[in-house]
Amino acid sequence: MDALRARSLSKVYDGRRGRVAALDHVDLDIRTGQLFGFLGRNGAGKTTFIKIASGLLIPTSGSVELFGVDVRTRVREVRERIAIVPQEGKPFYHLTPREHVEEYLLVRGASSETARDTTDRIVRAMGLTPYASTPAMFLSGGLQQRTLVAMVLASGAEFLFLDEPTLGMDPFARRQVWDVIRHAVRAGSTVLITTHYLDEAEQLTDELAVIEGGHVLYKGSAEALKSKVRREVRLHFDGGFSTQELTPFGEVYAERGGLTVMTTRSRVEELTRAALERRIAVTVGPVTLEEAFLTLVGRSIEEDEAEGGAT
């Protein structure tokens, strides 16, 4: 069964510079129990989608259902089953992490005992124990974010909307959050997560969608996305080559003082031999999700610009 089903979902904002389509006829299905990732540039439409799907924003047209319930007309039923980490949300400045989690659970209707036990577990799992009794105003930005995420993950809601939940966290904290998210999914929650950390999307999600300009460009696994760009290998040269020389082999971009080219397996030998002849260090590895994402979105932007130029 689909936990979320969006059909032809559109949202148009009336701005000073005319009408702007944040979402343009988006179709999306997320299966129950899935950990689904949403990738896209700033302003691509990820947060707009989450706001509509969680009942915080009214769409211009189209429909979205959560567990078969229409979000637009039966939002109260939907709210019974969800929890959300909003983008750039912050906790109450005067409450401690422990109070945040426990009070949130009590407000959601948990018994005192359940709230206390769950709070103990989640505070420990999120690495918040040393700060559990410190008011949020004295915590760093990353710890405040962890507190907010802990509240929502503790809820055990059937559907969790996590809009950039690990923003501003150090790599250790991010991994702790990943573990708690995975635990939530094992316990039966469905998760929709947006992130700009592509390693996070690759490590965490079962399936992902790439959104750009309000359109879903891709939906599938991270591995399939990498193969979709038809470039399997990345070669990094510490100088010695010009962009013009490498362009015939694939997409080229500047990185760490050298050039990286994404190409097919069949061209690797030719390129490494050329590098060795010029006595230039070369690093070979698989294409990353970030590179696949940049290629996919980059192509879409180029196409849009070409269409814009043609009209």
Partner: peptide, 8 residues
Amino acid sequence: QVFISSPL
């Protein structure tokens, strides 16, 4: 938003 998106 966090509190409204709940059974409350």
